[in-house]
């Protein structure tokens, strides 16, 4: 075999060994460490309702009707079997149109002036699975949700503030309300009510 052939064979054997180490042993080791250190997170931050898995606290859930807080618009209809942004450019007519439509829809749903609708309520996030909304958008939804669940606005506002990020993550990022955990709390409050 000539020098080139020998190099290719060496490369193949090296890659094979490296694959066992980096492609198999490494992820298995990390899996083991994850299960030991933080199993809840490693397994998807699953939340349970009445003992049954009811979603991941990190992922948005599609909402209809008047009983729940709506997450932001999504380019993938909140379906975590895929993930994507709209990838529309900032000056694209399609983006201008979708923002206008979203604004009109939210204003109508929450019975407020279109100018009162915050930016996160009318734009899709980077993943399409973003469960978080701004405190302003949450405040906008409180009257409707309170009415829909037969709860007092004050009680709902309390749930909102309990599910608003604070401390380090709010400072590094921005204060956000997790609609998935908030809706879970709402469900439980309704059952208790």
């Amino acid at each position: 075999m000539n020098a080139y052939g020998r190099q290719l064979l060496t490369a193949f054997r090296f890659l094979l060994c490296a694959t066992l180490l980096l492609g198999l042993a490494y992820p298995v080791l990390v899996f083991g460490l994850g299960q030991a250190v933080a199993p809840a997170q490693a397994n998807g931050s699953i939340i349970t309702v009445a003992g049954k898995p009811a979603g991941s606290s990190l992922l948005a859930q599609p909402v209809t009707g008047d009983k729940f807080f709506y997450p932001r618009p999504s380019a993938v209809d909140w379906n975590p079997e895929t993930s994507s942004a709209s990838n529309l450019g900032p000056n694209q007519p399609a983006l201008v149109k979708s923002i206008a439509e979203n604004r009109a829809e939210v204003a109508k749903r929450e019975d407020v002036a279109p100018t009162a609708v915050p930016i996160d309520a009318v734009t899709a996030g980077g993943s399409g699975l973003d469960p978080d909304i701004s405190p302003a958008y949450a405040a906008l939804q409180v009257p409707r949700v309170a009415k829909g669940n037969g709860l007092s606005p004050a009680a709902v506002r309390q749930l909102v503030s309990a599910n608003t990020s604070n401390g380090l993550n709010a400072f590094l990022g921005q204060p956000s309300v997790n609609t998935t955990t908030l809706n879970t709390a709402l469900l439980q409050a309704r059952v208790a009510h």
């Binding site: 990390v30 899996f31 997170q41 397994n43 898995p53 009811a54 998935t180």
Partner: peptide, 28 residues
């Protein structure tokens, strides 16, 4: 990264009834 919430597992979780009532498959 796992401690912050990044997943490391060998399969997703099918959620039959989400909090909001719909269905979803949480990826793994």
């Amino acid at each position: 990264l796992i401690v912050t919430g990044v997943i490391q597992n060998w399969g997703g979780t099918d959620i039959h009834t989400l909090v909001t009532g719909a269905q979803q498959t949480v990826p793994g």
